[in-house]
Design a protein around this nucleic acid. Structure first.
Lengths: 191, 191
DNA sequence: CCTATCCGTTAACCCAGGTTAATAAATTAC
DNA sequence: GTAATTTATTAACCTGGGTTAACGGATAGG
């Protein structure tokens, strides 16, 4: 029984004991080394994941080969490229493990079964999507309203724990600037 | 009976005739003049709308009072600040009618009733949210990967019809630059 | 312990968009 | 049809991040 997973789902809907068992059985445990990919850009994201342990980053690759880190997920969070997962389109992002990571995975078809089989399954699907939607919108808002300097401050505020788990160039990429520029920002802030 | 509305919903789920009637009855018709607000920043978005006729723009207001246009919706599209609507939080965007506009409105509670009362109601809630999610993600992607010039070209491509319905400064705001800069972009492209 | 590699900072120069203000064009009002 | 207002363009100057390359510190491997 995947307790962390069941606990997270239980934040959204009520589950009977039988349903907890049934759900646990749909998830397969996958282990990844640092640097391994959960998903590569261009692939269809066929499984949704729940991070049992570890840390992943999402990035897009520009035409010139540069990659831009757009998000992070850590233990006790769900991970997948939801847009690709939903409509079986090629993913526009890669998801890479940047620590040794354990992910519980469920296939698209099994998740659809979950929506049907579990009493409040459809509601869970709706709520999880609504949750992800709100996150996505906040992201848009951040990009629209904030300067790189503010985004850096916000990153420090929101992910204080990740600062020590991440190399600086992932942070600069997340903030939307190049490493030299993040250095300048840090210098400005230090005064 | 609101036929346009029912048609749109029928793209997502099957509806019985009785359900079509029932749904139609939950929506109230509201009319707006050019410049009127469907929603103001800071208010909670308590109704979801379906635009029968007209055109609205979404904008956020920065601390310095400047507003940034983040999206448009036109006839036959749903409109609301979904994040605010979902969790009753103050909206971070305003929605303003920029043409005389007719909107069919349903309250939050009635929509929850719809999820329960209509056979495939929960599924509709999930699918509409998944649809909005994919749109939001595309928006993030656009901001991340594209320069203002590319966003302008994409705007021309995606909303050719809106070019003539919108003043230029809404377009420049949507593209993410100031009017003088959009002029420079247009000049560059003209050569 | 020394070397090679990686990473973060710094400097110099470049460029796109911001800012401000003036002007021209297009709408709207009367 | 003319005046008033709003909107679009242009010019001059400013600013912050990009680019490239050099340097220094840290880390890892031998």
């Amino acid at each position: 029984m995947h307790h962390h997973l069941i606990n997270q789902i239980s934040h959204f809907i009520k589950l009977s004991d039988a349903e907890k068992e049934w759900i646990s059985d749909r998830f397969a445990t996958r282990r990844y080394e640092k640097g391994d990919y959960f998903l590569r850009e261009g692939q269809v994201c066929r499984e949704a994941g729940f991070i049992e342990k570890g840390l992943v980053r999402y990035f897009v690759t520009k035409e010139d080969g540069e990659d831009l880190t757009v998000d992070f997920n850590k233990e006790q969070e769900f991970t997948c490229n939801y847009a690709s997962f939903l409509d079986h389109s090629p993913s526009n992002t890669s998801i890479q493990c940047i620590e040794p990571t354990t992910i519980l995975c469920i296939s698209y078809d099994d998740l659809q079964q979950l929506y049907l089989h579990v009493e409040e399954g459809q509601k869970f699907g709706r709520l999880i999507c609504e949750y992800l939607y709100v996150l996505a919108i906040k992201k848009v808002d951040t990009i629209y309203r904030q300067q790189p300097e503010q985004r850096y401050l916000q990153f420090l505020d929101r992910y204080p724990e990740l600062v020590s788990r991440l190399p600086q160039y992932y942070i600069s990429s997340y903030v939307g600037v190049k490493p030299p520029s993040l250095s300048r920002i840090r210098k400005r802030l230090a005064t």
